[in-house]
Design a binder for these strands. Structure first.
Lengths: 248, 248
DNA sequence: ACAAAAGTGTTGAACATACACCCATGT
DNA sequence: ACATGGGTGTATGTTCAACACTTTTGT
């Protein structure tokens, strides 16, 4: 059985073409049934879709998520949704708010527990997880038409991410394992939506002790090849726990 | 109708006797019905109480909150619960997490949207809001026996408050309108659970521009009377929005 | 040789930390 | 006069912001 008045949704952020992107989908109960829910749950879900034509439309996009089966833990299930939808494990995921205004969804009373996730778009192939009619990345500044209050949820996620990123070094999750300092800086500039001073940025980042020089360099670039860094997982976890004044 | 699988609960923090306290209650459906829910909802609530003897016990304490009526907005209703339970308006209230593990409450599947609130215990009289069998302040270090996962929720609220208080000047909500710098410092020491240097603390706080010298002083104290300050609401709101590096 | 991005250091200002004594008030 | 907590300043080290040129690589 699924809880009809409760959904879990993920705002999945990715850093792509030097822009902050969000992964949205057009869900389809038939496909969800394959991976995430049981047969009876599928029947219930279908009813919900019947009630809201917007859910079935080709025009509107929604957050990746679904209703919560009674026997599932909230956080565990959110992780499961993400894994199924992206094919990736160990994604950075954070519950950031529950949306519950009475009128937010027509004809139904649904609360949405919202999470945001940070991933690197290069690391997964959307073709490989055909769990929806359509799945696509959208530039955060050029969102398509979305269902219900999804836009509000995305904006709140963004706001929360901006706060988070100021004090905790979470940005790394959106980069490949090996990255250049310029990529890292661009990421921060995009998230915070402001220019940062290159020299000061590098000094600060390097003083954190989080970066590991891999000894490798970029290849095939028409300019001086940048060093590739990875980051020290152990120190990362330590810094995350302690809170730290990261303060970019 | 109330949503049986959804509750709203508030971790109410107060600063009392130089300790951080939490307001807990022992709820009673009969009394809730007077202020917060309708007659049919009362019937539903009674069933829930029947299922869980712990809810009716005199031994266990719980968070102030109840199930959500279908027609109510989440945040609005949380505020309403608080107002009814404390008799105070305009309380600082923040949704911090939704708890939803499958096994957290016996025999039932309930998600709890948890809020924390900051109030000044002197400003309300618990006798005046007889909405529960019992309502009482508990030192955060000496919690009584609590129902379900309430302890976990309180600890998570505390952790979130500690983070919040580091970067946003929210502590003021727990003080009287006029307070001394020593009171403010003690509050921060209690929340953060560490000693702060008086001179440095005063410098920092005063440089924030948030404090207004009321011109008044303590009276009837057996030592030099301390100046009373209030804080500048306008600058406060500005600082809250901008995020600011408060960083005590 | 040129275009394009990588990489690097210094200085002055602001802020953080550490630390010890006198002051005002009530009893 | 004494006990109690209120209130203050300085020196040192650290961190932040502002700023411009040289290096490496591919074409």
């Amino acid at each position: 059985m699924i809880l009809k008045n409760l959904s879990i949704d993920c705002v999945i952020f990715g850093f792509k073409d030097n822009k902050l992107n969000v992964l949205l989908w057009q869900a389809e109960p038939e496909l969800l049934q394959k991976y995430l829910i049981s047969k009876e749950e599928y029947q219930q879900l279908k009813e919900i879709f019947e009630k809201n034509p917007a859910l079935k439309s080709d025009k509107y996009w929604g957050l990746i998520g679904t209703h919560l089966p009674v026997e599932e833990d909230l956080d565990v299930y959110a992780k499961k949704i993400l894994e199924v939808a992206t094919g990736l494990k160990g994604i950075y995921l954070k519950q950031f708010r529950t949306f519950g205004d009475a009128g937010r969804i027509p004809h139904m009373r649904v609360l949405t527990v919202a999470y945001y996730a940070l991933i690197n778009p290069e690391y997964h192939n959307l073709e490989l997880s055909p769990i929806a009619k359509a799945v696509r990345w959208f530039d955060i500044d050029q969102l398509p038409e979305v269902i219900f209050d999804v836009k509000e949820i995305i904006l709140k996620a963004l706001k929360t991410l901006r706060e988070e990123v100021k004090y905790h070094p979470v940005g790394f999750h959106m980069l490949p394992d090996k990255f250049t300092l310029t990529e890292l800086q661009t990421l921060y500039e995009v998230i915070l939506d402001k220019k940062l001073d290159t020299r000061n940025f590098r000094k600060k980042i390097q003083n954190m002790g989080l970066l590991v020089d891999t000894g490798e360099k970029q290849t095939n670039v028409a300019h001086r090849a940048a060093k590739l860094y990875s980051f020290d997982l152990e120190i990362y976890h330590q810094l995350r726990e302690e809170g730290l004044n990261f303060s970019i």
